[in-house]
Amino acid sequence: MLKRQYIPLWVTIGLFLLIFIVGSFRYTGFFSMQVLLNLLIDNAFLLIAAVGMTFVIVSGGIDLSVGSMIALTTMVSASLLQQGWPPMIVILLVLIIGVLFGTAMGAIIHYFNIQPFIVTLAGMFLARGLCYVISINTITIDNAFYTSVAQTKIKLPGGSFISISVLIALAVVAMGIYLAHYTKFGRNTYAVGGSEPSSMLMGLPVARTKMMVFGFSGFCSALAGIVFTFYMLSGYGLHANGMELDVIAAVVIGGTLLTGGVGYVVGTFFGVLIQGVIQTIISFEGTLSSWWTRIVIGVLLLLFILLQRLLGERRLTGRSSG
């Protein structure tokens, strides 16, 4: 029996497969391992940020600061590397900045009871503004470690390859799934998203959970920023501009309820892949232009929100007659 709460998830997976199959029949050279792996290579940073966003949205919040946080990470990394800091220290430092930044936003949201939307909006302005405080120009990275990570291709049997970033992204997805389903932190996140007052009355650590959720999202954004730095090999204040929207869209298309309480990291994984495969199709099509991606994603967003609404309504009527 198909459990109702899994319907959006199955729709997402089905949709991805459908698009991929259609693409395979339509375009020569589409059906290959490498095309599939390229989806991961090109969207590794999106995937990492989306895992963090999944937790935030499941907890009933939203985080608009992820794109800016990625930019800030590229900027801090690039400028510190330029000054000759060792790569490992830089990576550690930006991760700590990410966690602190996110936790601080979570604390403001919880303790002052301000909507997450507006607090993370301020965070978004702040992070992007700080980029320009460092420099308004692009800083290129020529650090040996960064360039070697960027260029390393891990060969897979069959002649295809992936990048190190993909490994990081997959590790984050695995960690996200584990956290969400096998730890108290994860379950508390779902509880808070399901009903915050109830969670309070059940004696769950609501404040800590909310701060940790935003802290985790900050961590993911910073990690996504590191991967993005590998990808671009530069720091720039305009990097990842508007990416928070792509991330939110990926999470929603992945079946996570924007009202909180229901969502799956696996779904987010496929949500990101759907975005990637749409881009790939559009590039294979040739005659279609890149902006179709946004339109298609907008339409998908609408469809998934309507689907959620429909399921939500059934849930409500089911309850009142009980």
């Binding site: 730890t183 108290k184 379950r187 399901g194 009903s195």
Partner: peptide, 24 residues
């Protein structure tokens, strides 16, 4: 005052889940 989105078992035990090494 429970969480409608969580499973029945979780609603009974959340906060006191049986864990081993942090794994539920």
């Amino acid at each position: 005052n429970l969480c409608p989105n969580l499973s029945v078992a979780e609603n009974i035990y959340i906060g006191n889940e049986p864990c081993r090494l942090g794994r539920i």
